[in-house]
Write a protein that binds this DNA or RNA. Structure first.
Lengths: 139, 139
DNA sequence: ATTCATAAGGTGTATATACACCTAAATCGG
DNA sequence: CCGATTTAGGTGTATATACACCTTATGAAT
């Protein structure tokens, strides 16, 4: 190390959060690999299975995701025929729902997700889930 | 909720980690906004300031980032003239270093980063940093 | 009813991320 | 020395993320 000027930045919480998310995502993605679903996609399908149907705004709110990000994340699932979009009564609203094919894909991935989740639960301290949940409510 | 089949997925640690990283990144990015640097870019410049110089592999290892991701993340910093790349003695190796201009940009951003870091430290539990650090070592 | 504000959502653009594959340089075994 | 292997790094492609801006539809005020 040449200087001491930026040593404090080693403790950057943003860096730490991003690095943790990268590592955890890679871990889950590798477990889910044979299902053909990425972590983000599995999360979206699981949400839609639970919710039944949801507007883009509702889903983005629940998932803590920018609306435009969610919109873009839906694209590969639409291409794969895993989700479907219908106009709501209010014609500004787009209602998202999972298809039969999407349900099947999510069910096939579920045991793989369970393996990843179990392994990750064992590796992280018990308070990790709560800490992450809290962190998602900053700002 | 229509079904109970995927309720367990609400606790997905990958979802939680990604959502937390999104929220924290948005918070830091907004603080850093007037500096013109994104969180990832600030982290890279701070690392280079501390390291003095580094090969692509060394930097990727330290930052817990895929080598190819780091390579791509360098592009906007190269365009902005904030970093410079020289060939090492071993001609396969590319040595990365911060420029005078990059140093100035990082110094201008430092007080903004400190504000964000202070606010985030106050909002998260004391163990958060350690938990995130631990999480980055899964896989 | 007309105007205006608001609400839902998409598009353009830029960055971030990672896997599969590729190239070039160094090194190792004979 | 020479062919095989390993190592450093880049490229092609796909997904993920978010801000600025735009369009359209609804609702409110007069």
């Amino acid at each position: 190390m040449n200087q001491t000027e930026f040593l404090e930045c080693d403790d950057c919480l943003c860096f730490a959060a991003r690095r943790a998310a990268r590592a955890i995502t890679q871990f889950y993605d590798r477990q889910l690999r044979e299902s053909g679903l990425r972590s983000t996609q599995f999360t979206l399908l699981a949400f839609l299975l639970n919710a039944g149907t949801s507007s883009v705004n509702q889903a983005a709110e629940y998932l803590g995701m920018e609306r435009t990000t969610l919109s873009r994340n839906l694209e590969p699932l639409l291409s794969a025929g895993y989700v479907r979009v219908d106009s709501g009564e209010d014609r500004r609203v787009k209602m998202i729902a999972i298809t039969t094919k999407g349900r099947a894909a999510a069910r096939a991935a579920l045991p793989l997700w369970r393996q990843a989740q179990q392994a990750m639960t064992a590796r992280l301290p018990p308070a990790a889930a709560q800490t992450l949940s809290l962190a998602s409510r900053v700002g």
